[in-house]
């Protein structure tokens, strides 16, 4: 099954986001091994060069590191993964709040809606 990619943004950025999501959701464990570029490219149905570029971005961010002989591994720094999660949570919240405010709810109402929904 190829990955969901939208047409308006660079593909490598979407691949980076997809892999980050898999790290946060626990599909890849901290310190665990990640598939080769070619395997991932075929899984996502994208060009291997594009996947390579996404990997380089992830390596620069420190989330993935490569071991010359045995492949690429997810960071075992759980603080880094937690920080990534909290920054993504911020993005989701900002998006939600801005949309729900546009249709006319204020802060107190939003809290009520969230509390009701979570129950």
């Amino acid at each position: 099954m190829s990955w969901e990619l939208t047409s308006d943004r660079p593909i490598y950025i979407q691949l980076v986001e997809h892999i980050k999501f898999d790290i946060m959701s626990g599909k890849y464990k901290p310190g665990g091994k990640i598939e080769s570029v070619r395997e991932l490219a075929i899984e996502a149905s994208v060009n291997p060069n594009t996947m390579q570029k996404a990997m380089s971005v992830l390596e620069q961010s420190g989330l993935i590191h490569s071991n010359r002989t045995s492949g690429r591994f997810i960071t075992d720094d759980t603080d880094m993964i937690a920080a990534l999660k909290s920054s993504i949570a911020d993005t989701y919240c900002a998006d939600f709040i801005s949309k729900i405010k546009q249709i006319g709810y204020d802060n107190n109402e939003i809290k009520d809606i969230l509390e009701n929904y979570l129950e």
Binding site: S7, D8, R9, P10, I11, Y12, T50, K53
Partner: peptide
């Protein structure tokens, strides 16, 4: 490159 086009034009090659 495809990603250059997407970055510069904010649209897919098809668009």
């Amino acid at each position: 490159t495809v990603d250059e086009i997407r970055e510069e034009k904010h649209m897919s090659v098809d668009e």
